[in-house]
Design a protein around this nucleic acid. Structure first.
Lengths: 138, 138
DNA sequence: CTTTGTGCAAACGATTTGCAGGATG
DNA sequence: CATCCTGCAAATCGTTTGCACAAAG
């Protein structure tokens, strides 16, 4: 576990979220992984050793966590939502072969001159999606 | 119409696509707009003055056009596919308010140093998604 | 006349929702 | 004990597919 149980509980409470076993499990699971799982993958993972949560509750938990900014959706054009407990801005690499997703630290692509976009548009942020082939698939 | 009928027919033939009224209409419609419509929007637009095509055929046509490289999918994290007859590389701006999508010319954000991504990844391409608020929504 | 496309309706996968019972603070 | 959450099943949304008929080359 990448973060202590008590710590996670505090984080949830600080966001005014009720601490239910299911919600805790979803967040703890996401903090533990960097592979941007889908809702289904989280469900499978949690229920590996006995039933912890159900489909609808996973979605509810993810939505609650997302609303308070503890979790973000990552959509990279596969027809599925992926989730990430790393809410700091960063970019993504996606392997077009196996679909694996990897974070690209923000600093690695920070030399982007956003001021060039047409006047009149209020820019809040941006992110780069890099596509290619990962080591395993080469 | 942004491009002559005969020209469109030639383009389709050059790609070895059979020229059906439906396929023609889908492609002509996409060439005519820059707003990256969804399949449903194309369907509605085409059938405005009498029935031209059906849902399944829109999807089939889009797939055929995509396979020969005349049309590309644009996925900007909304859970819908959008389509674009502009297949040259470019970036996208998306208004978080009304959902409008606008192209950003490739040159406007070309100062991106992709060489900084971690060694071992074979990079094929990338694109930037800029989010913000458009004029109409400000 | 062979091949490919069309349109309908049914199938599909991911996500959302209604609701009754249960847990949290 | 009031509020909010869970879990089930049914609903929904975008997209795909099977198939009989029709059109293109």
């Amino acid at each position: 576990m990448a973060q202590r149980t008590a710590e996670i509980i505090e984080t949830l409470k600080a966001k005014r979220l009720r601490v239910t076993p299911q919600r805790f499990a979803v967040y703890a699971n996401l903090l533990d992984r960097t592979d941007h799982p889908t809702a289904e993958q989280i469900l499978t993972d949690l229920n590996q050793d006995g039933p912890i949560s159900s489909q609808a509750t996973i979605y509810n938990s993810l939505q609650a966590l997302r609303q308070v900014g503890l979790v973000r959706e990552v959509l990279l054009g596969e027809g599925v939502c992926r989730y990430d407990a790393n809410v700091d801005p960063h970019h993504h690499f996606r392997c077009r072969c196996c679909g694996a997703i990897e974070d690209i630290p923000w600093q690695q692509l920070q030399n982007i001159d956003i001021s060039q976009v047409r006047a009149g548009l209020q820019v809040d942020g941006y992110e780069v999606t890099v596509h290619g082939v990962c080591e395993d698939c080469q």
